[in-house]
Design a protein around this nucleic acid. Sequence first.
DNA 1: CGGAAACTGAACCATGTGGTTCAGTGTTTA
DNA 2: TAAACACTGAACCACATGGTTCAGTTTCCG
Lengths: 121, 121
Amino acid sequence: MVQFPADRLDASFAALSDATRRGVLERLGRADASISELADTFHMTLTGMKKHVGVLEQAGLVTTQKVGRVRTCTLGRSRLADETAWIEAYRGLWASRFDALDRIVEELKQRETFDGRRQTE
Amino acid sequence: MVQFPADRLDASFAALSDATRRGVLERLGRADASISELADTFHMTLTGMKKHVGVLEQAGLVTTQKVGRVRTCTLGRSRLADETAWIEAYRGLWASRFDALDRIVEELKQRETFDGRRQTE
DNA sequence: CGGAAACTGAACCATGTGGTTCAGTGTTTA
DNA sequence: TAAACACTGAACCACATGGTTCAGTTTCCG
């Protein structure tokens, strides 16, 4: 199995595990925004929002830049490639295991109908 | 944009944000295991591992069943479809934003070479 | 029956999280 | 220049997390 950088996965999955932060990403997908704009949108103090942005920034999901007195947030360079890859790898495992299970169930069902001629269920 | 169930996303991303838990999923992808087996594999107390399994179970990523004195853990029914879908949706956003940026950069570069005939960089 | 194995639950601990307020600092703008 | 604005940092709060130990309970095996 491919090796994934645990710390990065930790950080980005943790970042994604909060609805507000997912909302911020969604918002930044539409356009860049300042901290106060985001704070306003998500009904939160400036300080609170700054923390969220900090988490997203540390996970590489957003980058920020301060010009004058306003700090502008942009979607980061990360394209979540590793995260998708991880999930996909395990979706593969899932699938194969469940397919095997499905096949067994199917076989049992067949046998049952054949042996007992049941119509129930 | 499609609506995703926030609580489920919260739970599963949080579950995935821990390396031990990702390891457990990987392990269960190979074969079912008891709590003590997992605890042993990941060098942790039974009680500690039980907590991790509890988190994974609550996120729908594993299911467990107790027979006699041993509780066996299996990959859950979840195929992480929503989670992948969420990430993919935003990978789409990411891509389009960066593509736009790339196009601008490309255009600037062209213009620069054309105007100044630079070979540097 | 009696001990060991496998789990369970409560309690505890250090640390992190999501939020706040309050008191700044630096930047605009009237 | 003074007020307003945008952010920053420290401190605090309640609660969650990742781990432990300890004291059970249930189940298996000899």
